[in-house]
């Protein structure tokens, strides 16, 4: 078994644990490379028929390419796509000029509403430990309380693949099947498996996105990598961090911690 096989099999194990313990589970699909890899792994875990909905939190500010990709592959893979938008906040004029507040309203609050509406008790999320320092502290199964708060100071012990298997009333569990993957692992796996991903990751006119989210808060990096092979080559030779182009990470050192404590993905 090589390393990609190990990563894959561990993720499948976690996805199946999540589904066994939480039948009203949803998969959070942002349409980026990580959550699309997660969809791919779910297809493997469930042998092609994914029994849980794919929840897409739409801020209204995503790239057009992302909407197109969502609709095309949602259909192709037979996903039950649930789109959630915080219409109230959008109508009230919430937008990217408000930075942290905007992320919180359109993503976190949008997610809260969707969870309440659909009674999800657990969510699969494609976050990875190497993305950000605070994420290095995450557990595979991570409880969130009513207010969505992450009690990062007192996390449950997690050993020997034994996970928190019940959500207390009113809480939900975040499940992170890709936690042990790195950005490079994702790309090697996408290449091996031929996983379709949106074009935004490939260089056009000397620029490409390494991480995608909302248009106003993502900036492309300088790159000529227009194929997966070239992206891998690029990653092997640079050590700038992946989220360097993401606005949330720049504001101050603990922005991410604050966002996450409030329930951000």
């Amino acid at each position: 078994m090589d390393r990609l096989d190990e990563l894959e099999n561990q993720s499948i194990y976690i996805i199946r644990e999540a589904y066994y313990h939480y039948r009203n589970l949803a998969l959070l699909w942002s349409v980026g490379k990580d959550s699309t890899t997660l969809v791919w792994l779910c297809r493997k875990a469930f042998l092609g028929k994914i029994p849980i909905p794919a929840l897409h939190i739409d801020t209204g500010y995503k790239f057009p390419e992302m909407y197109k990709f969502r609709d095309e592959y949602g259909k192709k893979w037979g996903l039950k796509v649930v789109v959630a938008r915080n219409e109230e906040a959008i109508a009230a004029g919430m937008g990217p000029t408000k930075k942290l507040e905007c992320c919180n309203a359109l993503k976190t609050e949008g997610l809260k509403k969707a969870i309440a509406q659909h009674h999800f008790s657990a969510l699969l999320l494609g976050i990875r430990r190497d993305e950000h320092g605070i994420r290095a502290k995450e557990r595979y199964f991570s409880p969130r309380n009513q207010e969505f708060k992450w009690n990062y100071q007192d996390q449950p012990p997690e050993l020997w693949d034994q996970y928190k298997s019940q959500a207390e009333e009113g809480t939900h569990i975040r499940v992170h099947p890709l936690l042990h993957w790195t950005e490079k692992d994702i790309w090697y796996y996408i290449r091996r498996e031929n996983i379709p991903i949106t074009d935004l990751y490939f260089a056009k006119n000397g620029k490409r996105y390494r991480s995608i989210g909302c248009v106003p808060c993502c900036s492309p990096v300088n790159s000529d990598a227009d194929t997966i092979d070239k992206i891998i080559e690029e990653l092997e030779s640079t050590n700038t961090s992946e989220r360097a182009g993401r606005a949330q990470d720049k504001e101050d050192t603990y922005t991410m911690q604050k966002l996450r404590a409030l329930g951000y993905m």
Binding site: R129, D130, G133, A136, K137, Y152, Q153, Q155, T253
Partner: peptide, 17 residues
């Protein structure tokens, strides 16, 4: 990485890198 960890100069939780 946690603000508390840096301010109090202690490691609270396990992390992986």
């Amino acid at each position: 990485h946690l603000e508390e960890e840096r301010n109090q100069r202690i490691t609270i939780d396990t992390a992986q890198i």
